[in-house]
């Protein structure tokens, strides 16, 4: 990764694009719910990774606290995307669904970028938290009980 970073970034970008648009283009069915949550986590993490790398072009030991507030406000606002009324309506249209997935990359990017601008490696920490949330949702968010 040290020798040719641009190569690996391109690989990551291709993976993201395949993941976002592949299913819609191929007309593939929905993956299991837990995998879908992990997919969201991957998209957020990939976006976060790009955001962190881009933010490092502005090396500064300690940024403005506004960056921190932006990160938290943005994260809280993006939770609205998880509400079923939003998600359910989008889910019905494959292209919209793909665009929503692209939005996850965007949220990841902006979150990773703003957090990294606040303080070194905060963007990495933020991205890991988001991945953690993805893993927690994969344990059962949106899944019904067994109705025994």
């Amino acid at each position: 990764m040290r020798s040719k970073p641009s190569f690996w970034y391109s690989v990551l970008a291709v993976l993201i694009l395949l993941d976002v648009f592949g299913p819609a283009l191929l007309g593939a069915g929905d993956p299991p719910l837990w995998l879908h949550h992990l997919e969201h986590a991957f998209l957020l993490a990939a976006g976060g990774g790009f955001g962190v790398l881009y933010a490092r072009r502005h090396p500064k030991p300690y940024g403005d606290p506004g960056w921190l507030f932006a990160v938290i406000g943005l994260s809280a606002a993006s939770l609205l995307l998880m509400l079923p009324d939003v998600y359910g309506n989008v889910d019905a249209f494959p292209v919209l669904h793909s665009l929503l997935h692209l939005a996850f990359v965007g949220i990841g990017y902006v979150g990773g970028y703003t957090a990294e601008r606040y303080s070194p490696r905060s963007g990495v920490a933020w991205t890991l938290i988001v991945v953690m949330m993805g893993v927690i949702t994969a344990t059962g968010f949106g899944a019904p009980g067994p109705h025994v």
């Binding site: 939770l79 509400l83 079923p84 009324d85 953690m132 968010f141 899944a143 009980g145 067994p146």
Partner: peptide, 25 residues
Amino acid sequence: AAGTVLVVALLARWASPTFPIDPLW
């Protein structure tokens, strides 16, 4: 992170009563 997932699930159920939740989870 866990608390956020919890509260979002409850808010989702609050906004749409058909949103499924596993009681043990």
